[in-house]
Design a binder for these strands. Sequence first.
DNA 1: CAGAGTTTGTGTTCCTCTCCACCAAATCTG
DNA 2: CAGATTTGGTGGAGAGGAACACAAACTCTG
Lengths: 411, 411
Amino acid sequence: MTVGPVEIGQRSETVRRANLGAIVRELHAHGALSRSELVARTGLTRSAIRSLVGELVHAGLAAEGPATRLGTPGRPSPVVQLVAGSAVVVALDIAVDSLAAAIVGLGGRTLARVRIERSREHSSVDEIAADLTGLARTVLGRRPAAEPVVGIGVAVVGVVRRSDGVVSMAPNLGWRDIPLGERLARALDLSVPISVANEADLGTLAELRRGAAVGADDLVYISGEVGVGGGVIVGGRPLTGIAGYAGEVGHMPVNPEGAPCRCGSVGCWETEVGEDALLVRAGLMPGGGRAAVDTVLREAAAGSATAQAALDHVGTWLGFGLASLVNLLNPQLIVLGGRFGRMYPFVTRALHAELDRRTLPAARSLVTVIPTSLGVDAPLLGAAELALEPLLADPAQWVRPRDTLPELKSA
Amino acid sequence: MTVGPVEIGQRSETVRRANLGAIVRELHAHGALSRSELVARTGLTRSAIRSLVGELVHAGLAAEGPATRLGTPGRPSPVVQLVAGSAVVVALDIAVDSLAAAIVGLGGRTLARVRIERSREHSSVDEIAADLTGLARTVLGRRPAAEPVVGIGVAVVGVVRRSDGVVSMAPNLGWRDIPLGERLARALDLSVPISVANEADLGTLAELRRGAAVGADDLVYISGEVGVGGGVIVGGRPLTGIAGYAGEVGHMPVNPEGAPCRCGSVGCWETEVGEDALLVRAGLMPGGGRAAVDTVLREAAAGSATAQAALDHVGTWLGFGLASLVNLLNPQLIVLGGRFGRMYPFVTRALHAELDRRTLPAARSLVTVIPTSLGVDAPLLGAAELALEPLLADPAQWVRPRDTLPELKSA
DNA sequence: CAGAGTTTGTGTTCCTCTCCACCAAATCTG
DNA sequence: CAGATTTGGTGGAGAGGAACACAAACTCTG
């Protein structure tokens, strides 16, 4: 219910921008809304809504449709909707086992999407950049019309410096200090801003905007893939930290007696709840990927004590780590994503037992743990949201400024 | 450099309010500033600054003094300063071993202050409320003139629900679900808003505004008293969580094999780095308080291997827990407060070694660990800042609205 | 010591945005 | 079908900040 911080030193133009942004944000989040609903949601007057919506319509960003019959008395209110084709972004996802690209329009509609499997051997920047460029061209070709592209968002399994899109570390890819943003910007050659962020952080954003966490302003998302990632929403805003490295929950030290971690440390959370920890305890080979995890789940469902013990181990340690997060962040919601989402029914008992044991009652009573509602595409959707952010924050840039009012008056 | 989030649905009045707030906030944070410095800092024009400062002066919240000679060419700019006596708050602090009260004026000047020792036996709400009321009356009597009181801020060693000032748990006081805000409001009978918050959270705020962390928008503060508390600043804003319970770092589980904690859990961070952990390892009796800690530090300085080993243990575990926070929050600064501030020189080696071992290099390279620069009064100052917050956010409420401009014109 | 240059305060004018009041339109209810 | 209710449209009013021109005060230079 609040928009981002407004810079000090406001002018009337700033007000217009903020109000336009508020309207676009509401429409982006909730889909079609009648004018009167916009009045109620934003607190703006009918006159202001009329003027601003008129401007959006004139700029082609929004369209007004006929009123929906509600059965209530009073003049029906026309329904306003963002035009998905008025501005689109390219979303890219570099996951451990796959690459994906999508075209997503204003309002959040996916206009085109493609995902390919990726062998873990081919992880050089050149190969991945080339593959992604190909995917991007594919989806750009598949979009219905020549919708204008206003941004590129990239999700990547690695630690990313937000300011310039440098991947400072990605163990799954073997990358260190790779200027991914720059590389992809050059390869795609679209001359629009490019934003790169961590896959889990973007999954969190997607969950907040389109998934199970809509409306949860204080949120923790844990993504279990090969490694363990996470994202945090604080007061409705993504937690980035000073450089964008925040949310690396997988490398919280939890066990002083633990096993060595890929990051170089010992006893990281990931070494207890990561994919390989589960597989090894279940008697399987490490590195088995998603299929192996599903095997464990099937075995547990069939009554295998070994499989269930492995899942209990993961569940207990999940609860152990989550207890830290609950006591530290006092979140409203914890969303388990990635493999954890599928494991959820098998780990929930151990997880909750540990959480009950180790969290402060006050904070415990307010938090709910749920599985993700988005599939593998969560980071991809989050990347789209990230790329759309500038447009939502300041739609005025895309609105032709001062020839709307006379036209409105004469119309 | 940013003000708080502005509600959607802005009006011109909102703009004025935000700009007035920005000016007051700058003056509150930096003390005296010339008009031209205000222009530079806020981005507002000279005209706007003139009008807004004029209004503040007219309302008595600010005063303009003669220009300071800078030796630079050009017309000198008058210096604007907040009038500390124009609005004051009552700050209260319920610490483990002491109670304190202060009168703090706009701009942050402490006009009166008193602190008394408290025996740990007398911890009932009635006793503490009575003592605090007495202290408050004392400082209110000592203030120079009859400055108007605009708020009350309370720091307490316990977990506090921000919305209504209920202390949900305070092991040091033996409290559970105590409506402290309500009790104190009734006892003080000042008919001004009262805000209650955790002592460490308020220490963090004080450190951010008045201490070693000025300008650090992503900050972690760890306060070591009998227990271990903490506060987090994210993007310049205090992290509260959904109900205000955030920052309970003392109860992050860190050691599955650890000792039982007062909170009912096992292996909390507090059980490894808290006061008693140090004392017992140094061969002293637990519960010795500040004096006992100082004894350990003296012994270590004198070369005692036992004392230094105990400090190394604390330092290592401090680093272990801080590593979680660094990987999770990617802060710019970590401030060690309370007993940790005094321990700093003795634990820094072990702490940094552990931090180096367990944090992601990217995040590690950006974070600095420093001891606090504020003394025991940090929470008290933070309580004052908390109580002043509404005034800073919207000084327009305290400004007589619309009789300034005519006067300015005729003057 | 005087004039040039620089910086800042002052006051006016203009622009933009929002709000308010009134009227018109569309729908439901009895 | 008439009244009630809700909402949209329009024009005027009010408020706030920006831009501009001018005046004032200070430093620097010769």
